[in-house]
Design a protein around this nucleic acid. Sequence first.
DNA 1: ATTTAATATTGTAATGATTACAATATTAAT
DNA 2: ATTAATATTGTAATCATTACAATATTAAAT
Lengths: 141, 141
Amino acid sequence: MEEREHDIYRKFQDLLSSKGVKPSFQRLLILEYIIKNKNHPSAEMIYQQISKNIPTLSRTTVYNNLNLFVKKGILTTLKTSDSESHYDIVDKPHAHFYCSVCGRIIDIDLKMPFFSRTFIQGHKIEEVKIQFLGICKKCLQ
Amino acid sequence: MEEREHDIYRKFQDLLSSKGVKPSFQRLLILEYIIKNKNHPSAEMIYQQISKNIPTLSRTTVYNNLNLFVKKGILTTLKTSDSESHYDIVDKPHAHFYCSVCGRIIDIDLKMPFFSRTFIQGHKIEEVKIQFLGICKKCLQ
DNA sequence: ATTTAATATTGTAATGATTACAATATTAAT
DNA sequence: ATTAATATTGTAATCATTACAATATTAAAT
Ligand SMILES: [Mn+2]
Ligand SMILES: [Mn+2]
Ligand SMILES: [Zn+2]
Ligand SMILES: [Zn+2]
Protein backbone atom coordinates (compact mmCIF):
# COMPACT_ATOMS: atom_id res chain seq x y z
CA MET A 1 0.00 0.00 0.00
CA GLU A 2 3.09 2.25 0.30
CA GLU A 3 6.17 1.37 -1.65
CA ARG A 4 4.89 -0.78 -4.43
CA GLU A 5 1.97 1.43 -5.17
CA HIS A 6 4.28 4.25 -6.05
CA ASP A 7 6.21 2.13 -8.49
CA ILE A 8 3.22 1.22 -10.54
CA TYR A 9 1.04 4.20 -9.85
CA ARG A 10 2.47 6.46 -12.52
CA LYS A 11 2.56 3.69 -15.08
CA PHE A 12 -1.09 2.71 -14.95
CA GLN A 13 -2.97 5.49 -13.24
CA ASP A 14 -3.07 7.54 -16.41
CA LEU A 15 -4.51 4.63 -18.34
CA LEU A 16 -7.23 4.03 -15.77
CA SER A 17 -7.97 7.70 -15.22
CA SER A 18 -8.15 8.37 -18.93
CA LYS A 19 -10.87 5.74 -19.12
CA GLY A 20 -12.73 7.16 -16.15
CA VAL A 21 -11.75 4.43 -13.71
CA LYS A 22 -10.40 5.32 -10.31
CA PRO A 23 -6.99 3.75 -9.78
CA SER A 24 -7.50 1.80 -6.58
CA PHE A 25 -4.76 -0.41 -5.25
CA GLN A 26 -6.58 -3.57 -6.25
CA ARG A 27 -7.22 -2.27 -9.75
CA LEU A 28 -3.62 -1.25 -10.26
CA LEU A 29 -2.39 -4.67 -9.22
CA ILE A 30 -4.86 -6.45 -11.48
CA LEU A 31 -3.82 -4.29 -14.40
CA GLU A 32 -0.15 -4.69 -13.56
CA TYR A 33 -0.43 -8.45 -13.47
CA ILE A 34 -2.13 -8.67 -16.86
CA ILE A 35 0.30 -6.29 -18.52
CA LYS A 36 3.52 -7.64 -17.05
CA ASN A 37 2.66 -11.30 -17.53
CA LYS A 38 1.70 -11.61 -21.16
CA ASN A 39 0.01 -14.91 -20.46
CA HIS A 40 -3.64 -13.92 -20.88
CA PRO A 41 -4.65 -14.99 -17.38
CA SER A 42 -8.04 -16.08 -16.12
CA ALA A 43 -9.81 -14.40 -13.20
CA GLU A 44 -8.72 -17.24 -10.96
CA MET A 45 -5.06 -16.93 -11.99
CA ILE A 46 -5.17 -13.22 -11.25
CA TYR A 47 -6.86 -13.84 -7.92
CA GLN A 48 -4.31 -16.44 -6.87
CA GLN A 49 -1.37 -14.17 -7.67
CA ILE A 50 -2.65 -10.93 -6.20
CA SER A 51 -3.91 -12.68 -3.06
CA LYS A 52 -0.26 -13.00 -2.13
CA ASN A 53 0.01 -9.23 -1.94
CA ILE A 54 -3.50 -8.54 -0.69
CA PRO A 55 -4.53 -11.49 1.50
CA THR A 56 -7.99 -9.99 2.00
CA LEU A 57 -8.65 -9.78 -1.72
CA SER A 58 -12.02 -11.08 -2.81
CA ARG A 59 -12.69 -12.99 -6.01
CA THR A 60 -15.68 -10.74 -6.48
CA THR A 61 -13.38 -7.73 -6.65
CA VAL A 62 -11.38 -9.41 -9.38
CA TYR A 63 -14.50 -10.24 -11.36
CA ASN A 64 -16.02 -6.81 -10.78
CA ASN A 65 -12.95 -5.01 -12.01
CA LEU A 66 -12.26 -7.28 -14.94
CA ASN A 67 -15.82 -6.66 -16.11
CA LEU A 68 -15.39 -2.95 -15.56
CA PHE A 69 -12.12 -2.88 -17.51
CA VAL A 70 -13.73 -4.69 -20.41
CA LYS A 71 -16.67 -2.31 -20.40
CA LYS A 72 -14.28 0.64 -20.43
CA GLY A 73 -12.24 -0.76 -23.29
CA ILE A 74 -9.10 -1.36 -21.24
CA LEU A 75 -9.22 -5.15 -21.54
CA THR A 76 -10.69 -7.65 -23.94
CA THR A 77 -11.77 -11.22 -23.27
CA LEU A 78 -10.49 -14.34 -24.95
CA LYS A 79 -12.65 -17.44 -24.87
CA THR A 80 -10.95 -20.74 -25.48
CA SER A 81 -12.10 -24.32 -25.24
CA ASP A 82 -11.40 -24.25 -21.53
CA SER A 83 -14.14 -23.08 -19.25
CA GLU A 84 -12.61 -19.84 -18.00
CA SER A 85 -12.49 -16.44 -19.66
CA HIS A 86 -9.03 -15.05 -20.28
CA TYR A 87 -8.06 -11.40 -20.39
CA ASP A 88 -5.75 -9.32 -22.53
CA ILE A 89 -4.84 -5.68 -22.59
CA VAL A 90 -6.26 -3.64 -25.47
CA ASP A 91 -3.21 -2.23 -27.13
CA LYS A 92 -1.55 -3.05 -30.43
CA PRO A 93 -3.92 -5.23 -32.48
CA HIS A 94 -2.71 -8.80 -32.75
CA ALA A 95 -3.99 -12.34 -33.21
CA HIS A 96 -3.80 -15.33 -30.88
CA PHE A 97 -2.75 -18.93 -31.17
CA TYR A 98 -4.47 -21.41 -28.86
CA CYS A 99 -2.51 -24.61 -28.30
CA SER A 100 -4.74 -27.62 -27.72
CA VAL A 101 -1.87 -29.50 -26.05
CA CYS A 102 -0.47 -27.12 -23.46
CA GLY A 103 -3.43 -24.74 -23.38
CA ARG A 104 -1.30 -21.64 -23.78
CA ILE A 105 -2.56 -18.54 -25.56
CA ILE A 106 0.27 -17.14 -27.65
CA ASP A 107 0.41 -13.67 -29.17
CA ILE A 108 0.70 -13.65 -32.95
CA ASP A 109 1.94 -10.33 -34.27
CA LEU A 110 0.91 -9.84 -37.82
CA LYS A 111 -0.63 -7.20 -39.98
CA MET A 112 -4.24 -7.63 -38.92
CA PRO A 113 -6.60 -7.87 -41.87
CA PHE A 114 -9.80 -5.85 -41.58
CA PHE A 115 -8.17 -3.77 -38.88
CA SER A 116 -8.85 -0.43 -40.53
CA ARG A 117 -12.31 -1.34 -41.72
CA THR A 118 -15.24 0.15 -39.86
CA PHE A 119 -18.00 -1.68 -41.74
CA ILE A 120 -18.41 -5.11 -43.26
CA GLN A 121 -21.44 -6.03 -45.33
CA GLY A 122 -23.34 -3.21 -43.67
CA HIS A 123 -22.46 -4.18 -40.11
CA LYS A 124 -20.54 -1.73 -37.93
CA ILE A 125 -17.26 -3.25 -36.72
CA GLU A 126 -16.06 -2.36 -33.25
CA GLU A 127 -13.55 -5.13 -32.74
CA VAL A 128 -11.91 -7.91 -34.75
CA LYS A 129 -10.62 -11.10 -33.20
CA ILE A 130 -8.48 -13.61 -35.06
CA GLN A 131 -7.64 -16.88 -33.41
CA PHE A 132 -5.59 -19.79 -34.65
CA LEU A 133 -6.17 -23.21 -33.11
CA GLY A 134 -3.64 -25.99 -33.28
CA ILE A 135 -0.42 -27.25 -31.75
CA CYS A 136 2.22 -24.76 -30.71
CA LYS A 137 5.85 -24.82 -31.74
CA LYS A 138 6.95 -26.11 -28.37
CA CYS A 139 4.45 -28.96 -28.22
CA LEU A 140 5.28 -30.06 -31.76
CA GLN A 141 8.75 -31.23 -30.76
CA MET B 1 -39.02 -42.72 -36.12
CA GLU B 2 -40.44 -43.87 -39.49
CA GLU B 3 -41.34 -41.23 -42.01
CA ARG B 4 -39.16 -38.34 -41.11
CA GLU B 5 -36.10 -40.42 -40.58
CA HIS B 6 -36.19 -41.49 -44.20
CA ASP B 7 -36.35 -37.94 -45.42
CA ILE B 8 -33.21 -36.85 -43.70
CA TYR B 9 -31.43 -40.16 -43.52
CA ARG B 10 -29.79 -40.01 -46.94
CA LYS B 11 -28.84 -36.38 -46.53
CA PHE B 12 -26.84 -36.68 -43.34
CA GLN B 13 -26.06 -40.33 -42.80
CA ASP B 14 -23.12 -40.20 -45.19
CA LEU B 15 -21.66 -37.23 -43.35
CA LEU B 16 -21.95 -38.95 -39.99
CA SER B 17 -20.82 -42.35 -41.26
CA SER B 18 -17.85 -40.84 -43.06
CA LYS B 19 -16.74 -39.45 -39.73
CA GLY B 20 -17.29 -42.72 -37.92
CA VAL B 21 -20.44 -41.65 -36.09
CA LYS B 22 -23.49 -43.88 -36.13
CA PRO B 23 -26.48 -41.98 -37.49
CA SER B 24 -28.99 -42.38 -34.70
CA PHE B 25 -32.32 -40.62 -34.87
CA GLN B 26 -31.34 -38.08 -32.25
CA ARG B 27 -28.05 -37.36 -33.98
CA LEU B 28 -29.70 -36.87 -37.33
CA LEU B 29 -32.20 -34.42 -35.88
CA ILE B 30 -29.49 -32.46 -34.09
CA LEU B 31 -27.47 -32.24 -37.26
CA GLU B 32 -30.53 -31.38 -39.32
CA TYR B 33 -31.44 -28.56 -36.99
CA ILE B 34 -28.02 -26.97 -37.10
CA ILE B 35 -27.70 -27.25 -40.85
CA LYS B 36 -31.19 -26.10 -41.78
CA ASN B 37 -31.32 -23.21 -39.34
CA LYS B 38 -28.21 -21.21 -40.03
CA ASN B 39 -28.56 -19.47 -36.69
CA HIS B 40 -25.65 -21.03 -34.79
CA PRO B 41 -27.81 -22.43 -32.00
CA SER B 42 -26.86 -23.21 -28.44
CA ALA B 43 -27.35 -26.63 -26.87
CA GLU B 44 -30.45 -25.35 -25.14
CA MET B 45 -31.96 -24.00 -28.36
CA ILE B 46 -31.38 -27.36 -30.03
CA TYR B 47 -32.86 -29.19 -27.06
CA GLN B 48 -35.98 -27.03 -27.01
CA GLN B 49 -36.64 -27.55 -30.70
CA ILE B 50 -35.96 -31.26 -30.96
CA SER B 51 -37.90 -31.97 -27.77
CA LYS B 52 -40.99 -31.22 -29.80
CA ASN B 53 -40.23 -34.21 -32.02
CA ILE B 54 -38.68 -36.42 -29.35
CA PRO B 55 -40.44 -35.60 -26.08
CA THR B 56 -38.18 -38.02 -24.20
CA LEU B 57 -35.02 -36.31 -25.41
CA SER B 58 -32.46 -35.60 -22.72
CA ARG B 59 -30.27 -32.55 -22.55
CA THR B 60 -27.39 -34.88 -21.84
CA THR B 61 -27.91 -36.49 -25.23
CA VAL B 62 -27.69 -33.10 -26.89
CA TYR B 63 -24.52 -32.22 -25.02
CA ASN B 64 -22.99 -35.66 -25.58
CA ASN B 65 -23.55 -35.55 -29.30
CA LEU B 66 -22.53 -31.94 -29.77
CA ASN B 67 -19.26 -32.75 -28.06
CA LEU B 68 -18.88 -35.86 -30.18
CA PHE B 69 -19.55 -33.91 -33.39
CA VAL B 70 -16.94 -31.34 -32.45
CA LYS B 71 -14.40 -34.03 -31.66
CA LYS B 72 -15.08 -35.66 -35.03
CA GLY B 73 -14.74 -32.39 -36.92
CA ILE B 74 -18.37 -32.19 -37.97
CA LEU B 75 -19.14 -29.10 -35.92
CA THR B 76 -17.20 -26.21 -34.49
CA THR B 77 -17.99 -24.08 -31.46
CA LEU B 78 -18.48 -20.36 -31.36
CA LYS B 79 -18.01 -18.56 -28.05
CA THR B 80 -19.59 -15.16 -27.70
CA SER B 81 -20.02 -12.82 -24.78
CA ASP B 82 -23.12 -14.74 -23.77
CA SER B 83 -22.67 -17.70 -21.49
CA GLU B 84 -23.65 -20.49 -23.86
CA SER B 85 -21.58 -22.19 -26.53
CA HIS B 86 -22.96 -21.98 -30.05
CA TYR B 87 -22.47 -24.52 -32.81
CA ASP B 88 -21.83 -24.29 -36.52
CA ILE B 89 -21.35 -26.87 -39.22
CA VAL B 90 -17.80 -27.27 -40.52
CA ASP B 91 -18.14 -26.59 -44.20
CA LYS B 92 -17.06 -23.65 -46.31
CA PRO B 93 -14.69 -21.46 -44.28
CA HIS B 94 -16.27 -18.19 -43.28
CA ALA B 95 -16.13 -15.52 -40.60
CA HIS B 96 -18.76 -14.41 -38.09
CA PHE B 97 -20.22 -11.15 -36.96
CA TYR B 98 -21.50 -10.95 -33.38
CA CYS B 99 -24.03 -8.21 -32.78
CA SER B 100 -23.89 -6.80 -29.27
CA VAL B 101 -27.42 -5.45 -29.59
CA CYS B 102 -29.53 -8.35 -30.83
CA GLY B 103 -27.03 -11.09 -29.99
CA ARG B 104 -27.21 -12.70 -33.41
CA ILE B 105 -24.26 -14.49 -34.97
CA ILE B 106 -24.17 -13.65 -38.65
CA ASP B 107 -22.20 -15.49 -41.32
CA ILE B 108 -19.66 -13.33 -43.12
CA ASP B 109 -18.57 -14.83 -46.40
CA LEU B 110 -15.20 -13.54 -47.43
CA LYS B 111 -11.93 -14.85 -48.70
CA MET B 112 -10.51 -16.11 -45.42
CA PRO B 113 -6.97 -14.95 -44.82
CA PHE B 114 -4.58 -17.60 -43.54
CA PHE B 115 -6.98 -20.27 -44.73
CA SER B 116 -4.41 -22.16 -46.79
CA ARG B 117 -1.60 -21.76 -44.29
CA THR B 118 -0.65 -24.77 -42.23
CA PHE B 119 1.92 -23.06 -40.01
CA ILE B 120 2.31 -19.65 -38.45
CA GLN B 121 5.47 -18.63 -36.64
CA GLY B 122 6.28 -22.29 -36.14
CA HIS B 123 2.89 -23.26 -34.73
CA LYS B 124 0.79 -25.85 -36.57
CA ILE B 125 -2.57 -24.42 -37.58
CA GLU B 126 -5.60 -26.70 -37.48
CA GLU B 127 -8.34 -24.10 -37.53
CA VAL B 128 -8.73 -20.36 -38.01
CA LYS B 129 -11.56 -18.36 -36.51
CA ILE B 130 -12.30 -14.77 -37.44
CA GLN B 131 -14.93 -12.87 -35.52
CA PHE B 132 -16.16 -9.34 -35.91
CA LEU B 133 -17.84 -7.67 -32.96
CA GLY B 134 -20.12 -4.68 -33.29
CA ILE B 135 -23.62 -3.65 -34.26
CA CYS B 136 -25.34 -5.42 -37.10
CA LYS B 137 -26.94 -3.77 -40.11
CA LYS B 138 -30.43 -4.33 -38.78
CA CYS B 139 -29.75 -2.90 -35.32
CA LEU B 140 -28.05 0.17 -36.80
CA GLN B 141 -31.29 1.51 -38.22
C1' DA C 1 -33.81 -66.65 -33.05
C1' DT C 2 -31.24 -66.17 -28.50
C1' DT C 3 -27.68 -64.66 -26.09
C1' DT C 4 -24.00 -61.53 -25.43
C1' DA C 5 -21.49 -57.54 -26.05
C1' DA C 6 -21.13 -52.78 -27.45
C1' DT C 7 -23.07 -48.42 -27.89
C1' DA C 8 -26.58 -44.70 -27.17
C1' DT C 9 -29.90 -42.45 -24.47
C1' DT C 10 -31.82 -40.88 -20.34
C1' DG C 11 -32.34 -38.73 -15.57
C1' DT C 12 -30.30 -37.03 -11.65
C1' DA C 13 -26.70 -35.27 -9.08
C1' DA C 14 -22.43 -32.77 -9.00
C1' DT C 15 -19.21 -29.26 -10.68
C1' DG C 16 -17.41 -24.88 -11.37
C1' DA C 17 -17.21 -20.27 -13.24
C1' DT C 18 -19.63 -16.29 -12.74
C1' DT C 19 -23.07 -13.16 -10.77
C1' DA C 20 -26.42 -11.19 -7.26
C1' DC C 21 -26.80 -9.19 -3.19
C1' DA C 22 -26.13 -7.15 1.20
C1' DA C 23 -22.75 -5.55 4.53
C1' DT C 24 -18.63 -3.10 5.42
C1' DA C 25 -14.87 -0.12 4.30
C1' DT C 26 -12.89 3.55 1.84
C1' DT C 27 -12.83 7.80 -0.61
C1' DA C 28 -14.72 12.25 -2.14
C1' DA C 29 -17.89 16.14 -1.46
C1' DT C 30 -20.26 19.33 1.45
C1' DA D 1 -17.16 16.47 10.90
C1' DT D 2 -21.16 14.79 8.14
C1' DT D 3 -22.89 13.04 4.34
C1' DA D 4 -22.87 10.99 0.03
C1' DA D 5 -20.72 8.18 -3.41
C1' DT D 6 -17.91 4.46 -4.59
C1' DA D 7 -15.13 0.16 -3.84
C1' DT D 8 -14.32 -4.03 -1.60
C1' DT D 9 -15.62 -8.06 0.65
C1' DG D 10 -18.11 -12.56 1.84
C1' DT D 11 -21.76 -15.50 1.08
C1' DA D 12 -25.36 -17.36 -1.39
C1' DA D 13 -27.48 -18.14 -5.78
C1' DT D 14 -27.37 -19.03 -10.79
C1' DC D 15 -26.76 -21.59 -14.72
C1' DA D 16 -24.29 -24.05 -18.37
C1' DT D 17 -22.01 -28.12 -18.55
C1' DT D 18 -20.30 -32.62 -17.00
C1' DA D 19 -20.13 -37.04 -14.23
C1' DC D 20 -22.23 -41.00 -13.35
C1' DA D 21 -25.23 -44.86 -13.11
C1' DA D 22 -29.32 -47.03 -14.99
C1' DT D 23 -31.91 -48.27 -18.91
C1' DA D 24 -32.67 -48.93 -23.73
C1' DT D 25 -31.18 -49.84 -28.25
C1' DT D 26 -28.31 -51.75 -31.71
C1' DA D 27 -24.83 -54.99 -33.52
C1' DA D 28 -22.26 -59.36 -33.15
C1' DA D 29 -21.82 -64.01 -31.98
C1' DT D 30 -23.60 -68.32 -31.12
MN1 LIG E 1 -2.55 -11.07 -26.60
MN1 LIG F 1 -21.43 -19.75 -39.55
ZN1 LIG G 1 1.54 -26.08 -26.70
ZN1 LIG H 1 -28.17 -6.79 -34.20
